[in-house]
Every structure is written in C-alpha cells, then in structure tokens.
C-alpha cells in the first residue's frame, strides 16, 4: 500500500528536483554574468545531476525505503551549501537556504535519514561557515535550525501516520472494488465460525490470472488494472446471493461461497471458467487462468485454512518450493 503513495508522489518529487536543477542553473548563469568564476564550479556540476534525478523520478517510482534519488539530492545540496564560495560578504542568503534544507529533506526523504542529513549539515555549517560568528549568534542559529527541523519532522510523521492509519482500516480494493486480503482474514474467521455453528459446508474458489504480471510488465499498470477489473466483473456476475468476492493478491481473486459443498464449488468453477474464456480477452495471448476449489475440512482451524489457501496458489508454487529447499 505504501508503494501506492510513492506512485502518487514520484512526479511531485521529480518537479522538486527540476526546480532545484533550474535554480542552480540560473544561479550558475548569474555567477557567470557577474564574472565571479570561482563560484561557478558547483552549480554547473550539480545542475545536470538534479535534471537527471528529475527525469529518473518522473519515469520511475521509488521502490526502496530510502529513495536513492533523494539521498543523492540531499547529499549534493548539503555539499553545495557547505562548499560553495560566498559571492558576497553578507552571508545571510546562505542562512536562508540552509534553514529551508530540513524542510526540503523531510519532503524528499521522510525517514530518519533526513534527520541525520539535517544534523550533519548543521554541524558542517557551524564548523565551516559560521565559525567566525559570536557564540550567541551560533546558539540562536542552531536553535532556529533545530526548531524548523522538529516542525518538519512532526509534520511529515503526522501526514504518514494519518495515511497509514487509514490504510490499515481500508477493507476494499480500489481496482476491483472487492474486499481486500486484510478484510478476508476477518471474514474468514466469521464464516468458519458460522459454518461450524450452523453445521453447513463452506467452500471457496481461487481464481488465478496467470497473465497479469506479463500484462503489467509489457502493457503497463493501467491495462493490467483493466484486465483484473474485467475478470472481477465476470466473477461478481457469477456469484450467488451470500457469496463474497476478494482480491487475494495482485493476480488472484477469491470467492468465498458459504453453504456450498466441494461439488457445488466444482459446478460454479466450470460455469465461471466458461464465462472467463468467452468474455475475458487480453493482448498477450489466449487466456491463461486456473480456478482451484477448496472446502473447509471438518475440525479445520482458520489458520490451517489460510495456509491451505496460500499453498493452493499455482503462481507462488516455485517460491514455496524454493523456500522448502532452503529450509
């Protein structure tokens, strides 16, 4: 779920890198025009780096906890703030850019790394740039810097916290509008206890769309989403009253069919299979789908059923075999 936020944010990150790149470019031009050639090296060197980071982030969303593009950008900006020769005797402007650094750091990299970068920059500034200032001034500057850093830190944490809390409460998959795997855990517990209390059978169908990863890779996320959305519509259409549909993982849908034996599940399976073959098309070849029926065994616990569901998925078979071999 957190990668979805990254997908949404990566273009705004790219814009920030571009803005910084353009800013440095403009600064290099200004230095060149004013003839202060000593100060031209760093902005000229960093402008293409920031532009490259911008292009990278625009095309690819971050998949790591600590975004390498953000780390590069923060390192580059930190070095620039510490090593760039001063263009005037009045260094107030460096104070400003340095004071906005923690804010920028927490936008680009909302992790403990930003905190470390900000503190390192403060130490560097005090040692390299502000060493000839009075102690009082150093103290006020440090307090101001740390105040801004703590505001940026709690602002970022609060944003992430609220989003995380909402994500943990969401039980519906946004693409298929089926319940998600988190909700399945709750419902499976309810349905198993209901099946026990009413002494009625409980079955389920695992619908695996094997071409989903290939479509996602070759035709993009949008086409892959449409593909699974169409499959979910067909599944929903074939569900009976009281049946529930879930998105078990990226490529697997699960139908929970209460009051149904394995024979009933097999009938539903063949009907659903025919409908999928007739109605679901894709651009990577003939439809490759497997539908596995399962039934709750007498005395089976919820955890055992969950394990059996996980072990019945064909697409994760190779991973399971590998895990078994490793263990």
């Amino acid at each position: 779920m957190s990668s979805e936020i990254n997908d949404k944010l990566h273009k705004s990150m790219a814009s920030i890198y571009l803005a910084l790149g353009l800013g440095l470019g403009a600064f290099a031009l200004q230095v060149y025009l004013s003839g202060y050639y000593e100060a031209i090296l760093l902005p000229t060197l960093l402008t293409p780096i920031f532009c490259a980071l911008s292009i990278w982030r625009w095309h690819t969303a971050n998949r790591y906890t600590h975004d390498p593009a953000a780390i590069t950008a923060l390192l580059a900006l930190g070095l620039f703030l510490l090593l760039q020769p001063e263009t005037s005797a009045n260094i107030t402007q460096w104070h400003w850019i340095a004071l906005s650094y923690p804010l920028l750091a927490f936008y680009l990299l909302p992790t403990a790394f930003s905190l470390a970068f900000s503190l390192l920059l403060l130490a560097g500034l005090l040692h390299l740039r502000l060493d000839n200032h009075a102690f009082e001034q150093l103290l006020t500057f440090s307090c101001q810097f740390l105040l801004l850093m703590s505001i940026a830190c709690f602002y970022t944490i609060s944003n992430r916290l609220k989003t995380k809390q909402l994500e943990q409460l969401v039980g519906i998959d946004k693409v298929t509008h089926f319940f998600n795997a988190r909700h399945l855990k709750i419902r499976l517990n309810a349905e198993v206890s209901r099946a026990r209390a009413t002494q009625k059978p409980l079955a389920l169908l695992l619908v695996e769309l094997h071409q989903y990863p290939e479509i996602q890779k070759e035709l993009g996320q949008l086409v892959a989403n449409n593909f699974i959305r169409e499959a979910s519509k067909i599944c929903k259409f074939n569900c009976r009253t009281g049946d529930e549909a879930y998105r078990y993982d990226a490529q697997t849908l699960l139908l929970l069919i209460p009051n149904t034996t394995i024979n009933g599940a097999l009938v539903l399976r063949s009907r659903l299979y025919q409908h999928l073959l007739q109605e679901l098309t894709n651009d990577v070849g003939p439809l490759d789908v497997s539908i596995t029926p399962l039934e709750l065994q007498i005395g089976e616990q919820v955890a055992d059923l969950e394990r059996r569901i996980a072990n019945s998925c064909y697409h994760s078979l190779s991973e399971r075999v590998e895990d078994n071999l490793n263990s």
């Binding site: 936020i5 936008y107 969401v170 946004k174």
Partner: peptide, 18 residues
Amino acid sequence: NRFAYFSRQEALQKQLNR
C-alpha cells in the same frame, strides 16, 4: 506535498468500510 497526501487520504476515506 500536503495536497498529495490529502488526495490520497480522501481516496482512502472513500474506500473505508470501518
């Protein structure tokens, strides 16, 4: 930055069933 989080949170609110 806030707008990006806000739109994400709004979308999650719509998906919320709890």
